[in-house]
Amino acid sequence: MALNQSLRPGLIQLRVLDLDETLKFYKDILGMDEVCRTSDGRVCLKTYDEFDHHSVTLRLADEAGLDYVAFKVASNETLQEMVKATEQFGYTVTEVPADSDQPGYGKRYRFKICTGHTFELYSEVALAEKTPGTINPDIWNEPPRGMGVIRLDHFLLYGPNIEEAERYCTEVMHMYVPELCNKPDGKRMATWITGSNKPHDLAFVEYDKPGKIHHVGFLLQDWNHVGQVADLIAINRLKKDIGPTRHAITRGQTIYFWEPSGNRIEVYAGGYTAYPDNPQRVWDVDHLGRGLFYYEGEIIPSFLEIVT
């Protein structure tokens, strides 16, 4: 497929309760690099294998959770089209000037979707100072630290009316839905959405409270690295939620745990290659346990019920 619309979720701003301790986790254990600090004290981070300026911003706040997610789109032309289409869809868009609150970022467009989450779209961002090599490149410049996550991969959001959110992603952002789960009444319970060949760039679960985040997912190389993450979780006395296990949905090999401020993190390897012309995979709610946790074969209550 031509990747000429939404490229990927490129930036996420998370609220943390303890900046020092949580930052230490993102750097020393998850393995991200600190790129910069903003004048208001937020910290910008990137993985060793990401090219763009930064992908995660941490903001000290009095509650944990998500400020917003931002998607990088293919060109300024695409961006302008999507902004117009977003307004036509019914969401009010505001412009965030270039190089303002996110260093290195070009102009961003911000709006709130029906689930209560703030989304942003942008097409321009400076390259990071330390990017992966490009001329006869090695696989890395410095050995990855800790869990050695490769990139910000996806996130799962909880909120009301995910059918509309799904329609926004497909109609305006030109994404597609490789996999979904319906309730017995035919209403959407969960949806996995992508603009690329990844099985998901984002997912939604229907939930009565708006604006919640279930987890942020980072990419790992393979199943061996999932095991290494499990070791690091144990060694560092982090609180594990689930895994190592396998999702039948997306096919990812995975482990979930909480960072020190209580935001849930997933590290994830594998997953199938999605194509927009492939038939959609559909799950009934009573098979969802096996879809989510293929080895356990059942829903793990903490997983579905705990969000920030």
């Binding site: 909480w258 401020s261 849930r264 969000v307 920030t308």
Partner: peptide
């Protein structure tokens, strides 16, 4: 849940006794 003061599943009331707060609560 998170053991980090973020998710709120461990919310209860202390009716009597004294305690020290280890972490910030959301």
């Amino acid at each position: 849940g998170c053991f980090g003061g973020g998710c709120g599943v461990c919310r209860m009331r202390v009716v009597s006794g004294t305690y020290h707060q280890l972490k910030r609560m959301s």
